[in-house]
Amino acid sequence: MNAMSNANARSGAHTQQQGDIVIKGEGVGKTFGNGSVVALEGADFEIKRGEFVSLVGPSGCGKSTLLRMVAGLIERSSGKLAVHGDTVKGPRSDVGLMFQRATLLEWRTALDNVLLPTELSRKLTSADYDHAEELLAMVGLQDFTFTFPSQLSGGMQQRVALARLLKTGADILLLDEPFGALDEFTREHLNLELMRIVADVGATTLFVTHNIGEAIFLADKVMVMTPRPGRLARIVDVPFERPRTAELQLTPEFNALVAEVRAVLGDH
């Protein structure tokens, strides 16, 4: 079904990566309503350690479905799916998730929201408080440690959610249109920070978006999906050096890649 997926001896920008595969899908499919709705037709893909992979496509093409299967939140209907070599059977602690909505608990301070993942797995130590504060500083919220979510802007709330995601200690980060509800300026700014942060922590990232430029700009590899039925149409390598700056998006090479992805999507 998808011959492209294995044909990538990547010249990745993440030089430190060993090239071992952390997420592997073979014919991963999902149907809803006893097979009446095909959300995703069998998808083949491999994601390597430290890679940043974008998942792009129009809404309804099965991006969230794929992400939620990787997260172990929904069962797949067909195919094989493995994370770190283990078949996915349910949520796991080395996979973290972030949504379009910040889903912060409004009765908790920013700090306590960041501490939630740890609190759910074991007793907190004072080192956890230090770590949470470092993470808040990393997302630029060092002055808002004891502020409550309703007192923060949408962008700041997503920063807290990002810090919370990092506090899980997961080395695989799944982000489902994390900045999709924010204005364009905030979104661009947060995208740049996200790139810096995931490179810092060396996480493997699966990033869902419906913005082609954003998908390419952030990623080492773009998985292009098409709707009706949801299908992984093509996997496109992104060769640009890191660190990247916003100016990259003005280059002809970048725009050629945008056109290539657009062409895949345009067939539908």
């Binding site: 939140l73 949520p91 998730l97 949504f99 889903t103 608990l105 609190e119």
Partner: peptide, 26 residues
């Protein structure tokens, strides 16, 4: 309680009592 938050708790491996006290009650 909000489905997204339920999903968050599930993805964080919360058990029923944690979900009750830390999510449902508040």
């Amino acid at each position: 309680s909000d489905p997204d938050r339920n999903e968050l708790f599930r993805s964080l491996g919360a058990n029923a009592s944690q979900r009750f006290w830390k999510l449902q009650v508040p």
